[in-house]
């Protein structure tokens, strides 16, 4: 019995055109927003030039929030109706979310050094980002440890789902907890229209790049999954071939 492998398992390796166009657009957006921030926006009256961190810092925070929320939602979908694509999406969102979480965590203290005079304060939003990042990294490690076992995948997904309500409650806890602290300068206020344009340009540019990263990672994971499926079919074929002489004899 010989089974022919259909061509559909061989994934085209070239990157789809739409993705390339999208990558170029995001790159241009990022360049445009950087140029705008550098050339057009004035320095903040209170904080000086360091305020220019604000644009990408907040953009990264948006990307992180959206990424991690999407990761939880996709994990939930994967638990309710398991599918390889939901799993791949959940993993890509989680990874990209963690990357931007680190961006927020590193740019935040640098900004704080200037505006608050120290790298770290237990300001509610900083604390929230730190805790959520720790949680997301733990889930990421869990998913990496689990490799491709079904149980591991489900456990990772379940933990990602747990992370969403936990983060929501952490948000309240740290807000009330930090309530006693003096609210230092509400830094990075938008003072004029150039700043507003810079802000939205940066947000759009980062979200677009984040989406590109998710799409690229998603494609990579899908390719990996299909490679595994192909290896499995090959193994089936080899096993059947080994049997053939045994059956005839």
């Amino acid at each position: 019995m010989t089974q022919t492998l259909s061509a559909d398992t061989r994934v085209p390796i070239r990157v789809p055109k739409t993705l390339i166009i999208w990558i170029i657009i995001s790159a241009l957006l990022v360049q445009a927003s950087l140029l705008w921030i550098a050339l057009k926006t004035p320095a903040d009256v209170n904080l000086g030039i360091v305020q220019k961190i604000f644009y990408f810092h907040v953009g990264s925070a948006f990307a992180m929030m959206l990424g991690l929320t999407a990761a939880s939602v996709m994990s939930l979908i994967d638990l309710i109706r398991p599918s390889d694509s939901a799993d791949a999406l959940a993993r890509s969102f989680l990874e990209v979310g963690v990357v931007f979480a680190f961006c927020v965590l590193t740019s935040g203290p640098l900004w704080a050094r200037k505006s608050w005079g120290m790298y770290w304060t237990w300001e509610p939003r900083l604390t929230l980002v730190l805790l959520v990042t720790l949680l997301a990294v733990a889930v990421l490690i869990l998913r990496m440890l689990a490799k491709d076992s079904t149980i591991g995948r489900r456990v990772g997904a379940a933990m990602a789902v747990m992370g969403a309500p936990a983060s929501y409650l952490i948000h309240f806890a740290v807000k009330w907890w930090g309530g006693n602290h003096p609210q230092v300068i509400q830094g990075g206020g938008i003072q004029n229209s150039e700043m507003r344009v810079a802000f939205w340009l940066a947000v759009v540019a980062i979200l677009s790049s984040a989406a590109v990263l998710v799409a690229t990672r998603y494609r990579a994971i899908r390719l990996q999954q299909r490679t595994q499926a192909l290896a499995l079919r090959l193994s089936a074929r080899v096993l059947r071939r080994q049997r053939a002489p045994m059956e005839t004899s």
Binding site: Q51, I53, C103, L110
Partner: peptide
């Protein structure tokens, strides 16, 4: 502030 700014963008 400038070096902080540059460092932040470099790290990201």
């Amino acid at each position: 502030g400038g070096s902080l700014l540059v460092a932040a963008y470099l790290v990201m």
